[in-house]
Nucleic acid binder design. Structure first.
Lengths: 192, 192
DNA sequence: CCCATTAACTAACAAAAGTCAAGTAGATTC
DNA sequence: GAATCTACTTGACTTTTGTTAGTTAATGGG
């Protein structure tokens, strides 16, 4: 069951009481979604925070030239959403899309507020999740600011080789802040 | 008084009781620090979260070539620290330095935990502060990934012209993810 | 006041990344 | 199984950014 995997994941971080488990089972909704399904749309307040049980998700938008720009990619075990817009209930300028078929557990902001107010350990866990996102974004902005395109690709290869096998190269290039042609060249250079 | 400016700032966000005000006055320590003073050091757990009353701060480290890399710059009104390391009490790989003389209010992690446990409105405010940092870093990583060097400089000019007059160009270039020479060229091109 | 130091700018050249256009290979469809 | 479509690659060329080194201007200390 999806929810059990999720509870195991939480349990690696905090101690769960039976009440906590019941709350999670009640409020986190398991969904199975097909490849390319859009979960959240540009211009709208993100409805859900997602926990990824299986599959790959991305955040993307269209720039002024109408080209797609992928700004985030994530995979299990982890959470996904346009965090700042989800938290503040503001309109997002990004779409959330399934890159592959995905098993997800989702929860609305209202329901999250509800369970975090009912359980202080769930609240602690939710704060932990947002801190993880903060840490991740600090790391990402540092890497984009200081590493070359090739170094960024090498780092992704080391830290997330699975992404290379499950996500289109064009999304990866955009995510790494370069053009698909540049990534193609870097990949050829590295194999030869 | 520094602390009054701080309380006014908080009051724009949350309603403060007399108890909250007393707690802040008791635990936030006002300090006046000279230009170039190092407040937190690479390799150590950051001691304080800082509120900036006046002046400019930066976060920087040395890369493998021994060159300084400035990763963040901030100014009033705002908080400053190596967030993820401060929160998790982990060793930071960044230094915090005063770029100019600074009036700051600082608080340790222990004291912050103490006042957030005593006052739920201060807790809400502290969560808000960390969310701001999350929002900021999402924005920053997106800009570094998608904008050209010139676009990044133009955006800084629009959004924080004051930084240009108070921070050395070399720090700004590094902060924008480019070499000082590149920024120099961009600036000349824009004025001619 | 002079010297030493540093920050910022310049110029010439090299390397990296973007652009445009075409080609290939693998799937998909009819 | 031919035709189509899509993702990815390639190559030639342009633009942007980095590199190195030299110059100038401002700054601070003795």
């Amino acid at each position: 069951m999806m929810i059990d995997k999720f509870l195991n994941f939480i349990a690696t971080r905090i101690a769960l009481t039976d009440t906590d488990i019941a709350l999670c089972k009640k409020y986190f909704e398991p969904v199975l979604l097909p490849k390319n399904r859009i979960l959240e749309e540009e211009g709208k307040v993100p409805k859900y925070l997602y926990y990824i049980v299986s599959g790959y998700l991305r955040l993307f938008h269209y720039n002024k030239n109408g080209d797609e720009v992928t700004t985030h990619i994530n995979c299990p075990p982890g959470f996904f959403t346009s965090y700042s817009n989800f938290i503040n209930e503001t309109k997002s300028d990004e779409n959330v899309e399934c890159i592959t078929e995905c098993e997800l557990l989702r929860i609305t902001k209202n329901d999250l507020d509800e369970i975090t107010s009912k359980s202080s350990s769930i609240k602690d866990f939710s704060i932990f999740v947002f801190q993880q996102s903060l840490t991740y974004n600090e790391k990402r902005s540092r890497e984009l600011g200081t590493l070359s395109a090739e170094q960024r690709y090498r780092k992704l290869m080391e830290e997330h080789p699975d992404i290379l096998y499950n996500v289109p190269i064009s999304y990866i290039a955009s995510f790494l802040g370069m053009k698909a042609e540049s990534l193609s060249r870097i990949r050829r250079k590295m194999t030869s």
